[in-house]
Design a binder for these strands. Sequence first.
RNA 1: GUCCCCAUCGUCUAGAGGUCAGGACGCCACCCUUUCAAGGUGGAAACACGGGUUCGAGUCCCGUUGGGGACGCCA
Length: 475
Amino acid sequence: MSVVVRFAPSPTGYLHIGGARTALFNWLFARHHGGRYLLRIEDTDRARSTEEAIRAILDGLHWLGLDPDEPPVFQSTRFDRHREVALRLLAEGKAYRCWATPEELEAMREKARAEGRPMRYDGRWRDRDPAEAPPGVPPVVRLKAPQEGETVIEDLVQGTIRVANEQLDDMVLLRSDGTPTYMLSVVVDDIDMGITHVIRGHDHLTNTFRQKQLYDAIGAPCPAFAHIPLIHGPDGAKLSKRHGALSVTEYREMGFLPEAMRCYLLRLGWAHGDKELLTDAEAIALFDLSGVGRSPARFDMAKLLNVNAHFLRQRSDAELVELLRPFLAKEGLVVEGEGARRLAAGMAGLKARARTLVELARGAAFYLRPRPLPIAADAAARLDEVHRAALAELGPRLATQEPWEEAALEATCRGFAEARGMKFAGLAQALRAALTGSTVSPGLFEVMVVLGREEVVGRLEDAAAGRNPVLPASN
RNA sequence: GUCCCCAUCGUCUAGAGGUCAGGACGCCACCCUUUCAAGGUGGAAACACGGGUUCGAGUCCCGUUGGGGACGCCA
């Protein structure tokens, strides 16, 4: 039997980090088994579903490289089919109409609570004659669920889980307005889409018992279930807005790489021995449900940053130049011509110092800024009179420096400092300030080679003459 | 409240009865060094608690505590 899985988000907001991981696990499982990975948009709640949210989910999945293998199925287009199934169950006596009003239901809840029992619908219309139906009250359709025995599910992650059927009540299949409920829609769609494995968040675990009953009533085989533990915030509580970024879009904007997100999310709740950093090929080859842990994991930004830094360094310099464009554009910097050349040439030194594309862009900006280069206040402080005078003298010397190579440049600068009885470290910081506008940068001589003779000499002149605007904040 | 699930360093985790309880992130120290990173070396850091079962328990069972989830004519 070929594997078919699906990711089934409801479009009531952006694609969040937990959903992204669920999608990833489904995707990996399908790839590992050579199966299909589908997307179903659960937009049956017309009031809360928005076009914008659908866009956001599709965009998020696309960015993460988790595009579905087939066009998405929109659950709202399948109302008729869902109704058809409910009506069939009704005809077969496996479901019944219920005229209980919201007030009656509320009373049942209160009574149950008072008696310390689970809050369940009491089945008052289960065997009652429909002729007794009150006039003018539109009924819902409920499943005639088994009242004795127990419902058991074999979860591929959580193991065997059983619940007494008396804990479960007769769930609503069709609302009084005739629309299908989530429970009905999910089960019917999963059956019709040929889903073999339902991999979803642990928060759906208790829904599964009811869904199992529905499968049984419909007479369809149950897919295998795998409920993966939830992701919690750093404090152990449910991940929420107050923990910072939830939307995958925000991670893109913070400069994270999709492959880093995939790797981090995968390792959050799944492990294969001591393997930490996996390529997609390795992840696909190694992924299995038995490796999924059973306890919830906390989201750790520090680790994500580390993982991202790793994957950043795996990218080629040319790729990084392209990835940097939108981030540099935010600072009004356009990557083209000489600037593009410098970025590519300087990328090796830049990427070792960045964990995200945002950091990389920040560190790379000095290669693109036109003269006179703005200098951060703390860097400008390194350009005192003594050092400005030194730079004024060093500039012309570098103008005739041959060859224009790192080792030679270093020899020249060190020799210059020594001849002047000046500490090289101080000269280096002054040079750094003049050339990069910062106290922090890639190696000085690498920077010189990348900038080129003309630009270096020009920037030194600017600094010696005090022409640079000083920025209030530093790096 | 009821039901269900979970429990190894601060965090992510390895561990499928016998390990000096391993790795990674983070942290600390040292090395490298023109800054900051990167890189290298080393270090501190965990089996929630209590009972069993067993020659032997982080591993199996029960309980306690703690955490989480679900209890809608939402999805």
